[in-house]
Write a protein that binds this DNA or RNA. Sequence first.
DNA 1: CGATGCCATGGCAACGATACCACAAAGCAG
DNA 2: CTGCTTTGTGGTATCGTTGCCATGGCATCG
Lengths: 375, 375
Amino acid sequence: MDIPLEAAFVCPPGLRIDWGHPENCADRLPMTTRSKRPTVSEVARLAGVGTTTVSRVINGSTRVDPNTLERVTRAIEKLGYMPNQAARILRGARTRTIGLLIPSIADPFFSSCAEAAQAIARVNDSLLTVITTQNDPHVEIENLNVLMRHQTDGLIIAPANSQSPVLRDIVQRLTVPVVAMDRPLLNAGISSVLADGFAGAQEATQHLIEHGRRRIVCLTGEATLYTIRERIRGYRKAVESARLPCILDTSIRDYKSAEYAVQSMMSEAEPPDAFFTLKNSTTIHAFEALQKLKIAIPESVALVGYDDFELAATVRPSITVVQQPVDEIGRIAAEILFENLAQIGVRPHHMEPQCVQLKTRLIRRSSCGCSVLAG
Amino acid sequence: MDIPLEAAFVCPPGLRIDWGHPENCADRLPMTTRSKRPTVSEVARLAGVGTTTVSRVINGSTRVDPNTLERVTRAIEKLGYMPNQAARILRGARTRTIGLLIPSIADPFFSSCAEAAQAIARVNDSLLTVITTQNDPHVEIENLNVLMRHQTDGLIIAPANSQSPVLRDIVQRLTVPVVAMDRPLLNAGISSVLADGFAGAQEATQHLIEHGRRRIVCLTGEATLYTIRERIRGYRKAVESARLPCILDTSIRDYKSAEYAVQSMMSEAEPPDAFFTLKNSTTIHAFEALQKLKIAIPESVALVGYDDFELAATVRPSITVVQQPVDEIGRIAAEILFENLAQIGVRPHHMEPQCVQLKTRLIRRSSCGCSVLAG
DNA sequence: CGATGCCATGGCAACGATACCACAAAGCAG
DNA sequence: CTGCTTTGTGGTATCGTTGCCATGGCATCG
């Protein structure tokens, strides 16, 4: 089966369509890969010099005669020479590849982090290898070993368990720099980049309290992760400071459990007047359940979610959320990693680990009780 | 600044929380990486054998005496030996790394593809290196070269321009297998895996026609991509078969332009009675604009979108969409790539390129006029 | 004028794993 | 007992690059 080319879309008259960049970039294709790639000695032979000189030209390490430089450069171009990475690495060079160990690529939070990290890797002339762990510590350790076998220069990891002594020991024994992202790896002596979930949750809860809400239920979803636990701490701090009850519900996993939980809570003697959901999927499930049960938001119950998502502003009512600086997290984690990498060999001891906590932002929309003009 | 551990979440009485896997996997940490990794010769010395024998044990290529096997295995474990990838690659082995060139990781469509491809890479004992191109042909070619420098075993690419002669030439000159994903690379002689946008769009348009819609406007958004053009073909086929007008609007880029476009079309003498949007962002912008302008969906205009998204079922009215088999696309692309990889050296000539077209699915919700029970 | 220093350059070894060849010992048929 | 294969094993060259050291030419200085 083949794509029929003749049937391709023909631009109708009067309809201007931009066909993209002109692509006059034929000048920059250096033969890419051929069956047998030329080597330094072949270049050297053609240029009439020694292999060392060719190497010097490539790496620009020592001064070479302008005349020789010219000849060698021409030989390199003529043969389409490209240094062999493997040989360089064998001689001790970096692989120019960093690893990213995250629970899932499909998760919008982590895919945004990955995108930002990849951009930083690119400006540092490195590649990014992504591995998903599904938050399984076994998979995590397994693949950490895989990355080390591949001699990755460094590693960004979102640990499934921030307190895992096993992971901590392994990471401490590594000779390559590691940066924790989104969740710390406690007492491992590595840098970490996270959003301040405690402050974010506290601010959101506080906001609901200011709206006069008194029975604020925190819908945690599964509460094993460090991030979720921090958010719970923030919620707890806020309600306890206001002498309000601290009510946690960890039961919501999907739409069905959300409907059940919401229904049973709303039919209690003292029903909640606000829900604070700690992650995206829980927010959506709770929102769906409330709509299905025809419970008015924010009149009957207010709703505030943690983590922003594309349609939070579009649904009716629009949903107030705690927004995390996703791009920043990935970007800074990668930046710190490359800073560490740059330090290797310069100092006898590694850089002091730093813990970056980024501020979250409360995006006020309608579901919390704020009257927001749509748009 | 350090994370206060003592302040960590304490499980309240009566609230069962699953703390995750037990992590009793301390047995599987093979020293990972040390300052100076042991080599075959060190293992050989310890086991009292030659390096060749050690190599044979590692690769299980030839029979070795059970006795020797035992000794070597023990030596490997004792030293925590791990073969040096770079040396192997220099000797001609695979890098066990494949590249994925996509416009963006943050895009839900491509992140799902990436996730699926990564899973296949894992079962083939390989890593996946992700590079984003932002649909820029220059970046695309640039990074294709970067991947080749890194000696990637193979490549999955979503070409920015399916008809680019430059990209086609480069790909044809590559010695590693390449698979096109989501969009073909025409006449390059490589396999491609795509969703059938023509059929999907045709079916969706047909569906609107069956609902009695007569003026169906196709909101394309930017229409440079192959996929979008295929969808336009499908839409056109359907309306032309029904002798209905073919009305394309390529102007929508964001919420503002959507509002303008919708408003001006609705105030025409013959306003549209349905919108068919060709991609996610356009669907959302059009939906927002219709809501803002208080135009009833589906009473005044019906709406069908291309590409499903998480909240399409949650918003009111829920949105009817053409769903693409995202996971399948990534999975099959990777599978074909590894099949090609397995063929290298077996046959003198490469595998016959295949073009896989996957079926889409029309998800009937409310916005098209179908009365759907929520849930 | 001879000694000293700098510059440009080349030869060679080494990084670590493995394919190839060689060889010894053992088994086995004639 | 001889000539053959089979089995287990080791030595060594090689992959392509780069660091170290050596060398020859030229300029500078006492």
